[in-house]
Amino acid sequence: MTTRRRDLALMVPGEAEYLCLVRDLVTTVARKAGFPDCRIGEIEIAVDEACANIIEHAYGRRPPGEPHVGKPQAIAVRLALFPDRIEVRIRDRGRCFPPEMASSLDIAEFAASGRRRGIGSYIIRSFVDEVHHSYRPGRGNELTLVKYLAKGVPGG
C-alpha cells in the first residue's frame, strides 16, 4: 500500500496574474519529490494550462487590467506527494468545464492551419499520466492531474 507523504494547498484568485504562484508551488514540490527538471516542466505546464482554462472558460475572461466586479472567484490547488507520484487537485467554483482530451497533435498540420490555440488541451492530456475530472452543481469542477516518478512518457 502506498503511504501518503505530504499535502500542500494554495488558494489564489482566479486571475492570470496569480498563475505564477501556482507554478512556483508545483515546481518546488515536484523538485522536492525528486522529479528531474524536464519532467517538472511537464507538470508545470499541464497545471498552468488547467488553471488558465479555469480563468478563461469556467470563470469567463476578464479584459486585462479591468477589475473584477465583486469578489474574485478562487482557484484551490492541493498537492499530494506520495512516494511514487505527485497528485495535483485543482478546484474551482465555475461552470462545468471538462477538459478537452486531445490525444494527438500533428504540429506540422497545426502550423499549416494558422491556428494559435489548441495545444493546451493536448498538453493537459499528454504531459501527465492520469487526468480525472468531476463536476458537482453548486460546488464546481475538480480536475486531478497525476504524474508518477517512474513513468512519464508523454502521450503514453
Partner: peptide, 10 residues
C-alpha cells in the same frame, strides 16, 4: 505557455 507556443507557430 501553450498560447505563446501557438503564436510562435503562427
Amino acid at each position: 505557455c501553450s498560447t505563446a507556443l501557438g503564436l510562435l507557430m503562427s
